[in-house]
Amino acid sequence: MAALLEVRDLHVAYGQIDAVRGVSFDVDAGQVVALIGSNGAGKTTTLRTLSGLQRASGGEVRLDGDRIDRLAAHEIVARGVAHAPEGRRLFPRMTIRENLDLGAYRRRDSEVEADVAMVYDLFPILAERRAQAAGTLSGGEQQMLAIGRALMSRPRLLMLDEPSMGLSPLVMRTIFSTLSELKTRGTTLLLVEQNAQAALGLADSGHVLETGRIVLSGTGADLLRDEGVRKAYLGED
């Protein structure tokens, strides 16, 4: 069976500069896949291209076997890909509830209320502050809302860009335990992280990006054991 998401030889360029140069990987349904690498490796650009914010200059992206690399961002969302972008990018002057409603913008079914309750269940703090403007939340709460908002579209593939960025270790642990909760529920996750330890601990498989290319792939556990990965990304000598 074909993978849920297939990325083949993806190239992305900003003007003269190639940010992503021939990246290929698969995400199977129900899997958690992590992309790790340092600043400027092309992780975020890859995600932005998958969700249609950026145009690929070459290669293919398929969802369920259909090409999606020429679609507009909103059409890709409609096909079940949600993207919680880097820096959360909430709507700061709208309430938590309104942010969640916008996450369900594409949906026409009657179960939106139930999903709002599900998100509140996952992150009780959001329920307490539902009428508060998103811009007034703390960093951790904003990240929770960003994940919750992305979940509201009932995605088949949830892409998270640096969910741990700027968070205290404690809050980060909360976020990752929620992610592993999502994993046990069978949510397909594509995770971009600089925090390799946490990401690879969660992931079924992982890919290491360097200057726009995948230099190493393996299962999460394998990569965690890999000498090079430990040196470069886990700060070990």
Binding site: A73, H74, R89, F91, E98, L102
Partner: peptide, 24 residues
């Protein structure tokens, strides 16, 4: 309205609005 909310979302962050599935 839904469209009204989409307008506000777009004015606050057009790119994020796209990720909500809004055709800006």
């Amino acid at each position: 309205t839904k469209t009204g909310k989409a307008m506000r979302a777009t004015s606050q962050d057009p790119e994020s609005a796209k990720l909500m599935g809004i055709d800006i």
